[in-house]
């Protein structure tokens, strides 16, 4: 994907973004919610958040669509061990350089089954995702295929890498490894 690394000054309406995604990916990507975010003394709608759910194999395609609209600012990845699967949320922003009130937050949820905890790395497209990918790898045990640096980022040097601190199953920390603060 070659997009010039700059933020567009032409914002699109959130509904237009939704239809651009629908047009290309149809029902594969589920639009969970388009939130109006209000503030101020008139309770005016100031910006929008778009929550999407995407199957793993369509994720890069979805990211390419976002790249056609603007260079997406990658905020962070959040995640959780949901039992059968691990949930990964990618948080992006579109149109944050396009004018007052034009930003559209785009959160993409991907569920990864426990027997295949792998995602394609997006560092070739967005190098700024490096720390998040490394963090999710060490905390939740997700393998990002093609990431250049797989070393630990926040955990200590002598950490037992089999222990994934944010997992809630047998891969997570044992009760005796957690010190309760008094």
């Amino acid at each position: 994907m070659s997009r010039k690394a700059e933020y567009t000054d032409k914002a699109m309406a959130p509904e237009a973004v939704v239809s651009a995604i629908r047009e290309r990916l149809g029902d594969a990507v589920e639009v969970v919610e388009l939130k109006d975010r209000k503030a101020g003394s008139n309770d005016a709608v100031c910006f929008h958040d778009l929550w999407l759910r995407c199957p793993k194999d369509k994720f890069l395609e979805l990211l390419d669509i976002l790249f056609e609209l603007d260079f997406p600012l990658f905020h962070v990845m959040s995640g959780n061990d949901e039992g059968e699967a691990v949930l990964l949320n990618y948080h992006f922003s579109l149109f944050q350089g396009s004018g007052r009130g034009s930003r559209l937050g785009v959160a993409v949820s991907v569920y990864l089954p426990k027997d295949d905890l792998a995602m394609p790395s997006i560092q070739d497209r967005i190098p700024g995702a490096e720390y998040s990918e490394r963090e999710m790898r060490e905390m939740l045990g997700i393998n990002f295929m093609g990431m250049p640096d797989e070393s630990l980022v926040f955990l200590p040097e002598d950490w037992d890498e089999r222990v994934k601190p944010w997992r809630r199953d047998e891969a997570g920390p044992k009760p005796e490894q957690i010190r309760e603060l008094s």
Binding site: Y7, A39, C46, L73, Q96, G99, R100, A129
Partner: peptide, 24 residues
């Protein structure tokens, strides 16, 4: 842009970005 710099660091590189402006 590529490395997702934010705040004064991004603005000092000439990017017109500020969440108080783009998403009040």
């Amino acid at each position: 842009v590529r490395y997702c710099a934010v705040g004064p660091t991004a603005r000092a590189s000439g990017l017109r970005v500020d969440l108080r402006w783009s998403s009040p």
